[in-house]
């Protein structure tokens, strides 16, 4: 992958006002999910309650960020692939002495990496501002680290879906709308109740939207809000394998299509 080309693509995708809007949106959403320790607790139980609060806060921040990240990754990938195609930049890039694999990787990384780092950076900032003390510093940093891979794989999933839609439709507005709708749909099904879904509601924990959050919850041992379900049958590493699978499920076919079949017809 050529770093100079990656730098140029990142500065194009994240130029004004995209960067400022993304930072504002993710920060505002994240700050609304900060937890405050308000329960009366015993001195002996303080540390465990505090630890629980830190992990629970991280899960909540990540969970709250998920929907804006889905939307942002969909819009940015659509712009990066479909708009470049429409404007002729894709044609210019594919005529350079650079392999299609590199161009695909550059366009993908230019969205996924900064978006993940932005989300993680804001998460880390909020966590440090709220819970960092001399005694809890290491804990806060250790816990916050786990938001990085979880967010990364989740963003990869939606970016893979968005790139497939963008390359198939090749129209900026159509593919952006289709991607946003697909993202909303993946989120929406996780909001359906067992009364609506019946017995299959238990399996929602394994969907691309819920699995990254459950990977964190299971890792930290967060208590389920309701009766434990199928999520307790899968160990934390099982959820991580699942989200890694989701990360590549659209990415691999899109990559194969782009490198072997994709044509610049217009």
């Amino acid at each position: 992958m050529d770093l100079a080309l990656l730098k140029a693509d990142i500065s194009k995708v994240w130029g004004r006002p995209t960067f400022e809007l993304a930072v504002g949106l993710v920060f505002f959403i994240s700050i609304t999910s900060v937890q405050i320790l308000f329960e009366i607790t015993t001195v002996s139980g303080f540390q465990s309650d505090f630890n629980y609060l830190v992990t629970e806060s991280l899960v909540r921040i990540t969970s709250t960020q998920m929907l804006p990240l889905v939307i942002l990754s969909g819009i940015l990938v659509s712009l990066s692939f479909a708009r470049d195609y429409e404007q002729g930049l894709m044609q210019t890039l594919l005529s350079l002495p650079v392999s299609r694999t590199s161009i695909f990787a550059i366009k993908f990384v230019a969205v996924v990496l900064p978006l993940t780092l932005l989300s993680w950076g804001i998460t880390l900032f909020i966590m440090v501002m709220n819970y960092f003390t001399a005694a809890s510093g290491l804990l806060v940093l250790q816990v916050s680290f786990w938001a990085l891979p979880v967010t990364f794989f989740a963003v990869m999933f939606y970016a893979g879906l968005a790139s497939l839609i963008a390359l198939a439709l090749k129209k900026t507005i159509t593919s952006t709308l289709a991607t946003v709708l697909a993202g909303f749909f993946v989120w929406f099904i996780t909001t359906l109740t067992p009364e609506v879904l019946g017995p299959i509601a238990d399996y929602l924990v394994f969907t691309p939207y819920a699995a990254p959050l459950w990977a964190m919850k299971r890792l930290f041992g967060t208590r389920p809000l309701s009766e434990p379900g199928l999520e307790m049958n899968l160990p934390p590493w099982g959820f991580f394998i699942l989200i890694i699978f989701y990360a590549f499920v659209f990415l691999v076919p899109t990559y194969i299509y782009f490198t072997k079949k994709f044509e610049v017809k217009e």
Binding site: D2, A4, L5, A8, K12, D84, Q87, L89, Q91, T92
Partner: peptide
């Protein structure tokens, strides 16, 4: 090969010199 298309599209946020430097680097 070097190519000029009828529809010229580059990284518009770069200057002309920056753009050519980028392409020159890619061409080694």
């Amino acid at each position: 090969i070097g190519v000029l298309y009828e529809k010229v599209a580059y990284y518009d946020h770069l200057s002309g010199l920056e753009h050519l430097k980028l392409i020159a680097k890619l061409k080694g």
